[in-house]
Design a protein around this nucleic acid. Structure first.
Lengths: 137, 137
DNA sequence: GGACGTTATGTTCCTGCGGATATAACGGCA
DNA sequence: TGCCGTTATATCCGCAGGAACATAACGTCC
């Protein structure tokens, strides 16, 4: 579900507040944390180090002003992490946006794909002329 | 118009063919080339080196199988570049997708922005339990 | 013919980012 | 009372990617 990112036709990155940026990577990470119940397990599943996973979540927390993940040390299994209500809400919102954006874009992508398939159709070799709108600056 | 990229709420990156990836950076570059009539002038305007601008355009050409920009050396003003019909079409399609995606996403972004504004509303401190779905792997 | 500005590459240097590693704290559990 | 796996940091290292620089070719204009 995270590797499918390679096959998405449209990748979406949204800027919510001033510093709160959310893209496919952090969305997948939130999802993995919610499913695995652990930051380190989520990192392993996504092929990233715990340190990086933690840093990404920390960036989210800074950006949103409060934590999207609530973690605990010690205890059964050593500890764990789960999404806060805010975290779950943010993840769900991102997934909805992703679906909507992909739908909104599908037609144009299809057009582009068709253009890409065309075998070039010789274009007039004429061109040039030095009208450099605003030369140096 | 290129600096406004910082203020976009939704950044869109589309994958058209196998290797043809198009995001805000290359879209702005295509636009600048079309307006300036020169790769180097476009690079200057976007604050990137000519080498980088050329490399990005080359990536596009490889990805789409044929050039989106037609350039010429020598002549009045030293040479120049203009968008091919394909290049203009691709740029226009990307701008349309960007607008549509942003519209499709606007409502959810507004919801998220509202969540971000909320002053936290104390959340139940209860959590934990060690159900590590798929532990190591 | 020389100057000029651009295209078109290659090469070298530098820096930021990610990965790996180390360490400490934590708290159920055997 | 150790043990264990996790959270939470800090530090160091390697490398990819960008910037800067160098060079050559090109064609029009003076």
């Amino acid at each position: 579900m995270a590797e499918a990112r390679e096959r998405l036709v449209a990748h979406l990155r949204v800027t919510v507040g001033e510093n709160a940026r959310l893209g496919p990577g952090k969305a997948d990470l939130l999802e993995a944390v919610g499913q695995e119940g652990s930051i380190s397990a989520a990192g392993r599943r996504l092929g990233m180090s715990y340190a990086r996973a933690w840093r990404l979540l920390s960036e989210l927390e800074v950006g949103f002003g409060r934590p999207l993940v609530q973690a605990s040390r010690g205890g059964g299994g050593g500890g764990g992490a789960r999404l806060t209500p805010l975290g779950a809400e943010v993840l769900a919102a991102y997934r909805r946006m992703q679906v909507q954006a992909e739908a909104a874009v599908a037609a144009e992508v299809e057009r582009l794909r068709a253009l890409l398939a065309q075998p070039a159709a010789e274009e007039a070799p004429a061109f040039h002329e030095g009208e450099t709108g605003t030369p140096d600056q």
